[in-house]
Nucleic acid binder design. Structure first.
Lengths: 312, 312
DNA sequence: TTGTAAGCGTTATCAT
DNA sequence: ATGATAACGCTTACAA
């Protein structure tokens, strides 16, 4: 592997000149430029990007932390980030964490080790305080409200309040909630909003992330019969689809037997006519990316829209 | 920013000793180890990972090239890759190309520049020959059949033949096909299989990738009336869902008015009872990752399964 | 067990 | 315009 010095020697110029040619700097005669280019070809020269990185102190790599790649929510946010990053010639390093703190730490350590120019958390398991500690090593953005770090988020409390109001107007009286985790800021906000609206813990179902989880919850609800909620606000469309499917299989009707309101408004909600809270996820990703280069604390709240369909 | 030399000086040891402490090497007295660790804390030392990279000549980064992150097909393959990579302490650099050759080239150039230890193409716009040229700079794996590069793929020709046989058995006589692109190895194989089965160009619909595309194609088909195919093999479940939705909206019935057989067997196919060809996508990703470290040419063909539902 | 010094391959500063 | 030379910060023979 020929390096810049080999080229310099072979072409009878200095390394500086070779570097100049490499970077299209001015102040290099056409004659030498051609000579350098020629010997590069002869010696099959390849620029070593790691050396550039070390010398410049920047990698042009942005880290993105998310729990699950294949969830529509996260893959759309990621998409938004990737789009902006690509426009600016940055690349994305992906950290799929499955909500394991250790995996999140790996990403933070790469920021600390200068392998990343910035880091975006689409969701997190570590505490905000833990994450904030790494802020001194480079820009960190959260897709969740934060008082100390740059962040882009939607108002989860308000979204639940809006959902409850919508359901009440449609005549539903006992409203339940499904959630993925039993901690996390967004989760807590949703729970708080539900309780403030006068509903109870017993109608909150945790561990609701996939279609199978939805089917499972549906079976629980069917056992409860009239002793359960008559409407459910659901983690995401996929879980809602699971509930929908299981109810249909058992000969139950949506929304007569159970009203469904889910989050994300993905294709499947559209197809099954499930009401859903739509978030501008691509925009969230794009905003997160932009926030990386804003030095002072900035929060961006994104609006949501409730799309009503047959399920409510 | 204190570096390894500063630490050495302050702790009264050599840089080698510091490096040894850093890497948990044996042969360093407990006394010095503690001294080093202590001064590291005092001087707030952070290891610079780029320097490590340059020195070692390996980055532990694997590049993944795919056209669209948010498509279930690709996000599942990516998931499989990420899982294996994470197990081995490698990280993923993501290249969302939107099938732009230039973007694919960026990834290849990073391999050439030693910023990547390997590269996986989940799909491609560049020719195999173009990609193969970069094989000299590091391992490259394709998720598509190739005679020269390591690859994991499914037999697209056979999948169409199987689909056609299935549809014929169910009584359908004129079978059409939807595709995303009008080139690409997988696409070509599908077209070839359809033609070999006795069907024609006129029933092939291109540009079918999203739900909206499906709706559009559905409208075209509705205009054709009885002058179109009575069954369709479809790019993916999302497109199929689009067709399904549009037909339902117009009061048409699936499969009476049109039989649908799609690819990928994602949630939405399950929910809408659409027959679908299932591929082991996670396994495909995992296999692709493993193939990176196999020096001699190896091909892995993955099986597919036709899941029959109400749409056929 | 410890240290010296030569890489790794660039970029950047400062003369000339 | 061109070049010497010092960073960048770590790893790793090789020597002691």
């Amino acid at each position: 592997m020929a390096n810049i010095r080999d080229i310099a020697k072979a072409a009878n110029v200095s390394v500086t000149t070779v570097s100049r040619v490499l970077n299209d700097h001015p102040y290099v005669s056409e004659e030498k430029r051609r000579a350098v280019l020629e010997t590069m070809k002869v010696l099959k020269y390849n620029k070593n990007l790691n050396a550039v990185t070390l010398s410049k102190g920047k990698t042009q790599i942005i880290g993105v932390v998310l729990p699950y790649i294949h969830q529509p929510f996260f893959s759309l946010v990621l998409n938004g980030i990737a789009r902006r990053a690509s426009e600016e010639g940055k690349t994305i390093m992906l950290f799929q964490t499955n909500y394991e703190e250790e995996k999140e730490r790996e990403a933070l350590e790469k920021l600390k080790g200068k392998q990343l120019d910035g880091l975006i958390f689409c969701s997190r398991a570590l505490s905000q305080a833990d994450i904030q500690m790494y802020g001194q090593h480079g820009p960190v953005v959260l897709c969740e409200e934060s008082e100390h770090m740059n962040c882009v988020y939607m108002n989860h409390y308000e979204s639940i309040v809006t959902g409850v109001r919508h359901l009440r107007r449609r005549g539903y009286e006992r409203i339940g909630l499904t959630l993925n985790r039993n901690s996390g800021r967004n989760t807590n906000e949703r729970v708080r909003a539900l309780k403030d609206s006068g509903f109870h813990d017993e109608d909150i179902f945790y561990g609701a992330l996939n279609m199978e989880d939805g089917e499972e919850i549906a079976r629980e609800l069917l056992l409860l019969g009239n002793d359960g909620p008559d409407a459910l606000i659901i983690t995401n469309d996929t879980v809602a689809a699971g509930i929908y499917n299981e109810f249909r299989r058992r000969g139950k009707k949506i929304p007569d037997d159970l009203a469904l309101l889910s989050y994300d408004n993905q294709h499947i909600a559209q197809s099954l006519e499930i009401s859903s809270v739509q978030l501008p996820l691509l925009e969230m990703g794009e905003a997160a990316y932009s926030l990386l280069s804003i030095p002072k604390h900035k929060k961006i709240e994104l609006p949501f829209t409730l799309i009503q369909r047959e399920s409510t």
